[in-house]
Amino acid sequence: MELIKRGAEAKIYRAKWMGKEVVIKRRVRKGYRIKELDEEIRRRRTKEEAFLMAETRRAGVSVPIIYYIDTVKMEIVMEYIGGKRIKDFIDDENEETQKKICRMIGESVAKMHSHGIIHGDLTTSNMILADKLYFIDFGLGMKSFENEARGVDMHLLMEAFNAAHRNEKLFKWVFEAYGENFDEADEVKRKIDEIIKRGRYMRRVS
C-alpha cells in the first residue's frame, strides 16, 4: 500500500485488492474525540460517502466503482482511475479542448445538482479525465435540493478556476453548459452573487 494523500480526516492509499488496482480511502482515528463518538462518526461518514457515490453514478455521472466498504477499518475500497487530474493539464490544452472539457464539467455538475447531490469540494483536483470525466472525493458531500447548497458548490468551483487556472473563460464555459442542462441555474447564479458578497468562502484553492 502506498500513501498518496493525507487529508484532514482521511488517508488515501493506492493498493492491489483481489488482483485489482484500487484506491483505499481510510478515515483516521481522531484522538481528541472519545472513542464511541469517533467510531460512530467515521462509520457514518464512510457509509454516507459510499452512498453519495452510488447516487452520483445513478444520476449518470462517472465515479470510481466501489468494490468494498469496511466499517471496522473505516475504509472504502474503490476503482483506481488511471487518468489525469483536470488541474494538472487543462492549462496546456488549446481553447477548443478546454471548452470541451469545461462543458463536460458543467453538464456533470448540472446532473448532480438536479438529482440533489452536492459534491461539497468541487475543485479541478477532484476531477479526473480518463475514458470519461470522473469525479472523486465526496467526503464533504451531501444530499440537498436547496439552491443555497448548489450555489456554495458552484461558487467553490468558480474560485477553483479563478485561483488555479489562467484562462478566465474556463468557468464561463462551465456555467454555460450548467445552465443549458439545469433549469434552476439562474437562481443558482443569484445565490453565487449573494455568496460572493458575504466574502466568507474566500479560500486558497489547491
Binding site: G7, A8, E9, K30, Y32, R33, I34, L37, D38, R203, R204
Partner: peptide, 20 residues
C-alpha cells in the same frame, strides 16, 4: 460537551488544513 467540543475541534482543524 464531548459532542459540541469535538465538532468545534473538527471545523478548526479543517480550517487549519485548508489554510495551511
Amino acid at each position: 460537551q464531548e459532542t459540541c467540543f469535538s465538532m468545534l475541534a473538527e471545523v478548526t482543524e479543517r480550517a487549519m488544513a485548508h489554510l495551511e
